[in-house]
Design a protein around this nucleic acid. Sequence first.
RNA 1: GCCUCGGUAGCUCAGUUGGAUAGAGCAACUGCCUUCUAAGCAGUAGGUCAUGGGUUCGAAUCCCGUCCGGGGUACCA
Length: 597
Amino acid sequence: MHIDQIIKEKVVEAIQALYAQQVETDSVQVQNTRKDVEGDMTIVVFPFLRFSKQSPEQTATQLGEYLKENVDLIEDFSVIKGFLNLTISKEYWLSVLGAAFLDPEFGFQKASEESPLVMVEYSSPNTNKPLHLGHIRNNLLGFSIGEIIKANGNRLVKTNIVNDRGIHICKSMYAWKQWGEGKTPESTGIKGDHLVGDFYVLFDKHYKAEIEELVGQGLSKGEAEQQAPSIVAAREMLRKWEAKDPEVIKLWEMMNQWVYEGFDVTYKELGVDFDKIYYESDTYLVGKDEVLRGLEEGVFYRRDDESVWADLTSEGLDEKILLRSDGTSVYMTQDIGTAKLRFNDYKIDKMVYVVGNEQNYHFQVLSVLLDKLGFDWGKGLYHFSYGMVELPHGKMKSREGTVVDADDLMAEMIEVARKTSEELGKLEGYTEAELAETYKTIALGALKYFMLKVDPKKNMLFNPEESIDFNGNTGPFIQYTYARIRSVIRKANDNGIELSEKLSEQIALSDKEKELIKSLSLFPSVVKEAGDTYSPAVIANYIYALVKEFNQFYHDHSILGEQDDAVRNFRLVLSKAIANTVQKGMSLLGIKVPERM
RNA sequence: GCCUCGGUAGCUCAGUUGGAUAGAGCAACUGCCUUCUAAGCAGUAGGUCAUGGGUUCGAAUCCCGUCCGGGGUACCA
């Protein structure tokens, strides 16, 4: 049991004994004592004044005396205004460290066959252009939240829904057919997703020129947008695709294949993966069937123009279109189909969608629609809604070339990591492969930590000019601390020093050492909080604080140079426990840690 | 218009269910490598927590108003 809980229960007991009053354990406020005040844990006594009918100081003193008298691990107390500061015994802190050191799964809960099955959908790219910074945030959040869900004792299925059909891919297809001159990734040496993206941009260029020309001929902008030859041709291509025209299907399959091969490279570099991938070309018809079923059952209704709608006004939402008047499906229809397929494939207890906050309304509606269609999991779906990544000049727009490309960004960061490492020159003796791996670990550590340390709900700013730092509150700072500890442990091994989990109670603990154990002891509750709130940032901020504290300790205390064997052993155990916690915490963010850097 | 999210140091961000004197990093300035990795440590400076009210022992945090900004409100996804 954690110290908070123990204290809370003892306070309840004390209130009962002193004032003959019942209070709830959760109503007792326990917090870490301020650094500049003597003590470890602090109880706020203001809420008890109505029972004690005495001043805050008197109440706190009475409580303190009772606790000191009756609770072994509480050694002493002090009172400042309405705050009761408790000093916890050294023996207790040492036992906490020993337990953390011995348990390789410290802070994590194991899943069993019976554990809830959680499906996390993330990434969800369109197949007409390469991945950019916005996708990176999505992928990193999705992967991380999956790891956090697992660490909280759930089974996990990671899934991706690929938007492989629709007008967007037809635009690239048309542009390639029209102006592509038979170019392929092989013939050009361009990565498949980038090549297809280039044609998407090319389409837009021609389309815009056509619109301008038509407007010059006297058409309105709206008319021109509808009548431009390129868009007419792309729409015709979409129609043929839906009619399964063999030539169009062949082109579609070929270009999508290029994109998938490109995506695979990017995903691998980013270190994310999926257990099951769905394609909208497979799910949109299922969704259509579901909507028609809903129509038959009277859940939806048909308008005069044959379009199908859901009336959600009684739920406080709007009316929502589900099938167009020409019978084709919309985004919502596809999501219904995908959901049905998934729940047929897996016995899912909880569905989590990692999708940007611009789609909050969409998921609110989806939840109600699934519920109306009789899926009992509809109401429980969770939209993990995250904020946008903004550039200094505003939003990213792929057609205006203001995007930060995922592949380029990673390559640039690896290059920075390489240069920095070479300047510092601490990797002597590493092979080329080991060097390359270390550069990548550091570069991706920097990128991932940068993206994950901020509250996922909030928009964040990315400044390509200033790039991502390697000092201060960053991934490499944390990795560096880990590498330092590993270095010490290696040296200990080399000198034949063995670590013992038996910690002598004779040694004196410095303030910093005690603080470190306290911080360490918080890890399990941090993992839980991150799971409860769907927030990798909680993990990131915790690790940073822990590591920052360790560096202070490292600076002020010698570990291997310590003459007293018991103290040296304690410091090694403490260091190793922290390294393990850092490694596990970083793994929840999808970040690796290097042995040396 | 309506719905929704946000506004904390020059910049990027933390800030637990309301608690003590609001914290980090970057940028600026100053110290510390003959001692386990200086991608580090220590220090200086920087704040009307957008703003006006309210709730109470106590508000960055909860409630109401105002200002500013993002997103949504499509037979786009």
